[in-house]
């Protein structure tokens, strides 16, 4: 009815769009307050010499927190700033190493667990409940539980390994620089494999069962079926799961902070940034490091989405 529309002023569609705007506004305001604005302020702080005790007294110093080059009268060049800081590069290396190893292990183990759960057997519900337990335990609590199990004197892991004969003497897992990273990896893999398994399982359950039956009838090797049929079919789900895990792993803080405090062998980018920001009163310097972490993650995500053609929004299959 054109006359009704003319007198009503707004079409239904316009009315709905107007309502949608007001529905979105509070959420957008909240996200700007806690995400966009703090992020911009962090970047701003990273270009000043602000200290924790004097948040508003910082002066603009440009990129000096990142890198500054000074030439002495003798002609010697002095590099300062995060990009010339070996401790920072050590943290970058620790984080990258941790992220890649943990995500690869979690994907492989998660795949195995998912394949097990995808089979039909008695007690499947029970197993699924059991693997949710590590996921539900707070990270700090799991760090403490494992710290106790990995204790050098009284820990059960040393005891087990001694009994089986895998090691000859007790290992100080979390304290020794050689093993600290293994300890962190162990706990993280234990805690996050279930999450990975559930995401992969969701992908697996979308694969129609008839495919397996047809393959079985044709007598095709199950391993071949897995690599030729199952894996390509669940690839989209897998790619999404991997990127979420990867982002989580690259920003890891709590586990490292509690399990191996102050160990240079495990200190990650998040840990070193916070340490500088809050503990060492180098607020702006820490802000520069966290800005760098943000930039690294942003580049990584864009590359991954672009190269893998990952469809995160799930819009295309609707």
């Amino acid at each position: 009815m054109p006359s009704a529309r003319a007198s009503g002023g707004l079409s239904l569609q316009q009315q709905r769009q107007r309502a949608a705007f007001w529905f979105l506004a509070p959420m957008l305001f909240a996200l700007i307050c806690v995400a966009a604005w703090p992020l911009l302020r962090t970047i701003w702080f990273s270009m000043t010499d602000t200290t924790l005790s004097n948040l508003y007294g910082g002066k603009w110093i440009g990129f000096d927190n990142y890198l500054s080059i000074r030439t002495l009268s003798s002609g010697k060049m002095i590099f300062r700033g995060t990009l010339a800081d070996p401790a920072w590069w050590n943290a970058v290396w620790n984080t990258v190493r941790f992220a890649f190893i943990s995500v690869i292990c979690e994907t492989v183990l998660g795949m195995i667990v998912a394949l097990v759960l995808n089979a039909e057997f008695r007690g499947r519900g029970l197993v699924r409940a059991a693997i949710l337990i590590p996921w539900a335990i707070p990270t700090i609590v799991s760090a403490k539980m494992w710290a106790w199990m990995l204790n050098d004197q009284f820990g059960i892991i040393n005891d087990m390994m001694l009994r089986v004969g895998l090691i000859e003497q007790k290992i100080a897992w979390t304290a020794s620089t050689d093993t600290a990273m293994y300890a962190v990896l162990m706990v993280d893999i234990w805690k996050t494999t279930p999450f990975m398994a559930l995401l992969i399982l969701a992908g697996l359950q979308m694969v129609p069962r008839d495919i397996y039956e047809a393959a079985k009838l044709d007598g095709i090797n199950p391993v071949k079926v897995f690599f030729k049929v199952t894996l390509p079919l669940i690839r989209p789900a897998l790619m999404v799961a991997v990127i979420f895990r990867m982002l989580d792993a690259l920003r890891i803080f709590d586990l490292v902070y509690v399990l191996t405090p102050n160990s240079a062998a495990t200190k990650t980018m998040s840990v070193i940034s916070r340490e500088n920001m809050i503990d060492f009163d180098k607020f702006a310097y820490g802000a520069a490091q966290s800005t760098l972490l943000f930039a690294i993650l942003a580049i990584f995500v864009s590359l991954y989405i672009w190269l893998g053609r990952v469809d995160l929004s799930g819009d295309s299959n609707r």
Binding site: P38, R41, L55, R251, M269, S270, M277, L293
Partner: peptide, 12 residues
């Protein structure tokens, strides 16, 4: 990464 907003949130 939560650390990226830590400084700004601290100020807020």
């Amino acid at each position: 990464p939560q650390i990226a907003v830590l400084a700004g949130l601290f100020e807020l």
